[in-house]
């Protein structure tokens, strides 16, 4: 068990080093920082001095090491576009994205699992078939279209909910939260649904197909042959076996939520890191892009690590083998 966890942590660190390398390469090879920092009137001496200052004359490995050292301290350089430290901008924006991701993640997981189990158990029922058909529309509808439709319906036509922004936020120890005001909560509704709906459909379809797969296994037949009731078979035997593969994917989905937030934030002009990132791409603001990549990879890797460890607790085969 311990060696399993150590192995996973080792892999996570490796992933971080690789993404760090990608981020660092973006700095080094995309656009010339000297160009970005010095004006038109520059001398070779200026360039050389700056190169030395920035450590650009050092070998690649040394530069990479220094980049990592800086990154660990939250120092990602200065945004080309805003002229402020990237770390500071990210910190300011992070709460908006995290709150949005949290609400829609919970929504996606709870509703996804419940509907998936329902459609698997009642696989031939009318309700299950309707849900499955609607879910296919859900998968075919791009997130941004869902957002636009919701805005049109609830903001433009009905005027019930705001069409953009976070509403009023309260600052709690440097964390600006929208959970504590009525307008903040109202503003969360549409973006959370938009962001969570697609993930919910995916989770639901996955739970359904995994569960149908499990229900075909011999041990379920044997449980039937022993006369166990459908309730016990479905919710005790089948559900637990279904969750083993589903948990991994849910971990990945949670990661996607943070990335898909980019789209939702654009549609709702939600002031989070996603909106920041999309603007950075449009203006080729490399430090912001690199920092976002690092930030997101830390989150993904953390989620995956937790999922892997959780996995080992659920599956006795892993627990004993390790």
């Amino acid at each position: 068990m311990l060696s399993y966890i150590i192995k996973r942590v080792g892999q996570s660190v490796l992933v971080l080093l690789i993404t760090g390398l990608v981020a660092f390469s973006m700095f080094t090879f995309v656009g010339d920082p000297i160009d970005n920092m010095l004006g038109q009137e520059r001398t070779q001496a200026d360039i050389d001095r700056l190169r030395e200052q920035l450590g650009l004359d050092q070998p690649f490995v040394v530069q990479y090491y220094r980049f990592l050292e800086q990154a660990v301290q939250g120092n990602f350089g200065i945004s080309y576009r805003q002229g402020r430290p990237v770390g500071e901008i990210l910190l300011e924006r992070a709460p908006a994205t995290l709150e949005l991701a949290l609400v829609s993640g919970i929504f996606a997981i709870l509703a996804g699992i419940a509907l998936g189990v329902f459609t698997a158990i009642r696989r031939d029922g009318i309700a299950a078939n309707v849900i499955m058909s609607v879910s296919l529309i859900g998968v075919s509808l791009p997130t941004f279209l869902i957002g636009i439709l919701l805005i049109y319906l609830f903001s433009v036509e009905l005027g019930w909910l705001p069409s953009f922004g976070r509403g009023d936020v309260v600052d709690v120890g440097g964390w600006s939260t929208g959970f504590l005001t009525a307008s903040g909560l109202k503003a969360l509704i549409l973006p959370s649904i938009t962001l969570g709906l697609y993930q919910m459909t995916l989770i639901m379809r996955l739970v359904r197909s995994e569960m149908l797969e499990v229900l075909r296994q011999d041990y379920i037949r044997f449980a039937l042959a022993r006369g166990l009731s459908n309730r016990v078979i479905n919710f005790r035997h089948a559900l637990k076996n279904t969750m083993v593969p589903v948990i991994t994917v849910i971990g990945l989905q949670l990661g996607s939520i943070i990335a898909f937030a980019i789209i939702t934030e654009t549609v709702f002009q939600w002031p989070g890191v996603g909106l920041l990132f999309i603007n950075a791409i449009q203006f080729v603001d490399i430090p912001v892009m690199a920092a976002y990549l690092m930030l997101i990879s830390v989150m993904f890797v953390a989620i995956n690590l937790i999922v892997d460890i959780l996995y080992a607790f659920i599956d006795p085969r892993l627990r004993v083998a390790a």
Binding site: D218, Y219, I220, A223, A225, R226, K240, N241, D315
Partner: peptide, 25 residues
């Protein structure tokens, strides 16, 4: 039928490796 299964008629399948649920003792 379910009430009879397991109580009055029991069954043994061919492959013991897949007949038991791997996640329960």
């Amino acid at each position: 039928k379910r009430a009879i299964r397991g109580k009055e008629i029991a069954m043994i399948f061919q492959d013991p490796l897949t007949s038991l649920n791997p996640l329960f003792t």
